[in-house]
Design a binder for these strands. Sequence first.
DNA 1: ATACGCCACTTTGTATACAAAAAGGGCCCA
DNA 2: TGGGCCCTTTTTGTATACAAAGTGGCGTAT
Lengths: 226, 226
Amino acid sequence: MSQASPIVHKTRTQLVVEVLREKILSGDIKAGEPLRQSALAQELNVSRIPVREALLQLEAEGLVKFEAHKGATATELSVEQASELFELRALIEPDLLRKSIPNLTEKQLNHAEEVLVQLESAFRSENAINTWSELNTQFHACLYLGANRPQAMDVIKGLNTNSDRYIRLQLLLTGGIPRAETEHRELLELCRSGQVDAAATLLVNHILHAKDGVKKLVEQHVNNEK
Amino acid sequence: MSQASPIVHKTRTQLVVEVLREKILSGDIKAGEPLRQSALAQELNVSRIPVREALLQLEAEGLVKFEAHKGATATELSVEQASELFELRALIEPDLLRKSIPNLTEKQLNHAEEVLVQLESAFRSENAINTWSELNTQFHACLYLGANRPQAMDVIKGLNTNSDRYIRLQLLLTGGIPRAETEHRELLELCRSGQVDAAATLLVNHILHAKDGVKKLVEQHVNNEK
DNA sequence: ATACGCCACTTTGTATACAAAAAGGGCCCA
DNA sequence: TGGGCCCTTTTTGTATACAAAGTGGCGTAT
């Protein structure tokens, strides 16, 4: 009765969603780039139906803009969007963390630490941008498990997916995110020792600090485009 | 060049989305009820393709659960979900309001008032549950326009859509929401006079108060079901 | 009697085919 | 030369047809 790897039959739609999401997040598909249904269908060896359904899902995630009769494009990046995303996260995540800390189990904390270790090693290895971003989101999510707030987690997940594009940009262009590593470790310790206020404060700063970094970067990046 | 009613060609998918959303929100389609693609297609005189695409969009909105190879169902209501929805709103909306008030134009305030008037008259007329709920959301949204926070507005919109199911339930069962009317009017005046803190505080209470009402109701409603 | 497996039926997933809307280009006319 | 209209081409939207997964019931064997 192992439920480990239940040989799930993924639908073609799900596969397309994953491929396209990764391509958009990684920048392989650039912002504003039109996504032709037939071209994608041919490229991925499926019909247009799964492609369309995938594009709809990605639109819901905010990665794609789908206009009737006009076609789909990867959504554009902007300083405004980045700022707003991080500020929203700075509002919601600390609240989640506060609610979570008192209920975090030893097991959950250990799991968070495992993720953190992977995160730290990914930081060092080259070309691990994609996994770093993924692990980063996962680490944050781990810490909120005690809050038992599925809806809020969904919202955060969505915000994180969108933040990812900016974070990867930063990783790509600067090679790292200055204080993230030490802050993560520190955050985990504060959670472990149950220091709610300190942890929440650190988290706010952690997120706002990330925002500042991204903001500067996107400003000049957008300038370069023109 | 009037852009008033630009003879929009709605796609069948969009039509199906609207019909199904309304049916779920109004309770016409009950929580947990399976949504057979062929049945819906036949009922609405379309093929299964637009139905599928509509179901996917509704899943993104949180109104439908779509399981591969199993089918779609209207998501279940629960006290936990209701509480979480309103608490999240109580966190995000006041923040939006604070940022909005200083930038609200006279025009925007007047528009909010118009909506409020409609809301008040809908309150009195019978069978206006559906429009009440819609106008309620619209009124709240109006007040946040000054914040210029499209992402946050999207999040709120989603949370509101889900709250709607509970609010309509309350309207249906109790005939009204006790203090909502007076609180709305009061809120508008505070916004007009630029009393940021007072407005934000009132809004928090307004939302948490709504939460309490819904919570009690859903508790007994869920009990009755069994 | 119960548990297991086979088979028919239902429902979903996806390919293909066709219809309709938008985009591009050439022609006419001012 | 420049603007506007019609026609062609491309691309999207939707119906239909087919493939595959899931579901339930019956029969058989233990």
